[in-house]
Write a protein that binds this DNA or RNA. Structure first.
Ligand SMILES: [Mn+2]
Ligand SMILES: [Mn+2]
Ligand SMILES: [Mn+2]
Ligand SMILES: [Mn+2]
Lengths: 221, 221
DNA sequence: ATATATTTTTAGATTCGTCTAAAATATTTT
DNA sequence: AAAATATTTTAGACGAATCTAAAAATATAT
């Protein structure tokens, strides 16, 4: 069944998977940007992945993963998120330090290892960033999280995920003492600049810019 | 400091380390056999490792690791054995199934990860095969184990390591119900064929061939 | 000391993943 | 519909790691 894939091939497949979640289809330039490589390299790899039946690709057209490709992608995402969970829960890493390590660990692909790790961790359904972890069949829980911008005034919610892992975002969040698990209440919205005022328990009111609010995902409580 | 090394370079360095433990020096053919590659490839890599100052090598002569090379080798061995311990202790793998997985995990090289894993496991000093785990400074505990062939009659001992991980050895051991941790007593030695008779608690006497005894390492109890 | 055998290195080719520069195709503007 | 622009693919080269076949050096045997 699943022939062996190189680390490079796995990285391409995972990147296509994430990009196609947005538009359904992916372009060569988009993928090159995502992988920090050149369009010419992407074309080469697409031809290879097509031979291996992992993508639906025709020259000069947008492409997407085949069902086999999607299956493999979900498996890679599973490994990535399980290792992230492991690093945070068992090795006491911060949720902002684990992504790069998981990028490496995700390529150790042994079904038994991954399933045992899953069991050891008690089958977690979400990773430390609030993203759902596919189970061994590739199914993932529905993400019950909502963007802060979509939440009505006076609602209480808990931060469960962030929209990016840029260090500039992380810097701002730590400055405002906001992290995964922080509970807050929406106090007021300002239509002029789409900023939001929130209150964290036992703290003063805080203002969040539109940009920041868009990067925060919460679940209602 | 430690420039980045490819997985391939790490594998060469680790293999040289293990081979030079025997004779002090390593030959091209020996290393090629160990890595299941061709002597020509070994020569190429030796030139590269020499430039990186990891080996003391002159054409046509036996070679060995530099002190930097040894340091890196100990680090790789540390990662390998910590992961083996993790897989057995936390993920319930058998000690005979973990080597191949550790071969992959050992190349995820992040100091913080390795040190945290070490702490999480409570700083184990020996891996599941009885081999000592280097600490974060590269120091390893003295191995107090002895080969079964060197043990006098009537001594009691506990199996703590095996000399190889070939499946033929593992098959024989499981047939005779011998594993890491098995306690036994030497009952008699036969000089004709150097076979040994041992007794395992609550079992009959068992005969071990010279070859098998040479592959078993124990510590006295 | 010469011949033979073994070990090691070199030369040249191959595969994978990448790149640059140029050509081909598609899209947008006028 | 032509021209201008943007996107994508091809052609050709390169570094890493490997291989085979042949040459060079070393070790062994006579
Ligand atoms: Mn991640
Ligand atoms: Mn994540
Ligand atoms: Mn091992
Ligand atoms: Mn071991």
């Amino acid at each position: 069944m699943s022939t062996n894939f190189s680390i490079t091939e796995e990285n391409y497949i995972k990147a296509i998977f994430h990009l196609q979640e947005v538009n359904g289809m992916v372009s060569t330039n988009e993928l090159a940007a995502e992988l920090d490589t050149k369009p010419a390299s992407v074309t080469d790899m697409l031809k290879k992945l097509k031979v291996k039946k992992m993508v639906h690709y025709e020259p000069y057209q947008a492409f997407k993963l085949s069902s086999d490709g999607k299956k493999l992608a979900l498996n890679i995402v599973r490994r990535h998120r399980l290792w992230e969970y492991f690093l945070v829960e068992k090795l006491q890493f911060g949720w902002d330090e684990v992504h790069e390590l998981a990028e490496q660990l995700e390529h150790v692909s042994d079904k038994k290892l991954v399933d045992r790790l899953d069991a050891f961790l008690n089958f977690p359904r979400f990773d430390p960033h609030g993203d759902p972890i596919p189970d061994s069949n590739g199914k993932m829980a529905q993400q019950e999280q909502v963007c802060l911008t979509e939440l009505p005034v006076q609602t209480q919610a808990e931060v469960c995920s962030v929209g990016s892992q840029s260090s500039s975002l992380l810097e701002l969040l730590s400055h405002k003492h906001i992290g995964i698990g922080t509970r807050l209440e929406i106090k007021q919205r300002f239509s002029f600049d789409n900023s939001i005022e929130i209150k964290i328990k036992d703290q003063q009111l805080i203002t969040l810019s539109k940009e920041l609010a868009q990067a925060l995902f919460v679940k209602k409580i």
